[in-house]
């Protein structure tokens, strides 16, 4: 698909800053680094589990910068009472992974 990513550039900047603050190794964050950040949202663990499933697009157990932005996007939307989707909407797939 072609079209703008649902993560807006200004939001991406914010998420990138959080990503960098978590000291990624080789441009990746492991689950144990991401988990406390997501838990901080106070969302139910089953919801956060779904957020992880949707954002770890290549299923390598780590999030790169774009995957992390997807995770944060879903968490922020969930905090605004938008349901976390069961499958990742195509427009939420980072352009680098389409």
């Amino acid at each position: 698909i072609d079209g703008p990513w649902m993560v807006k550039p200004e939001e991406k900047l914010k998420f990138d800053a959080i990503f960098d603050s978590l000291t990624p190794v080789g441009g990746m964050l492991t689950g144990d680094k991401v988990k406390p950040v997501l838990l901080n949202s106070k969302l139910p663990v089953d919801v956060l589990g779904r957020v992880w499933e949707l954002s770890d697009i290549d299923r390598d157990g780590m999030l790169d910068k774009d995957e992390f932005a997807v995770a944060m996007y879903l968490v922020y939307r969930a905090l605004e009472n938008e349901p976390v989707p069961m499958i990742l909407p195509p427009a939420l797939v980072p352009p680098s992974k389409r």
């Binding site: 689950g31 144990d32 991401v34 988990k35 997501l38 663990v45 089953d46 956060l48 589990g49 779904r50 992880w52 499933e53 949707l54 770890d56 299923r59 390598d60 157990g61 069961m86 499958i87």
Partner: peptide, 13 residues
């Protein structure tokens, strides 16, 4: 629950 193929790499499982 989780989408089919839910992975053991999920730190929330």
């Amino acid at each position: 629950q989780y989408p089919a193929g839910g992975s053991s790499t999920n730190p929330f499982l």
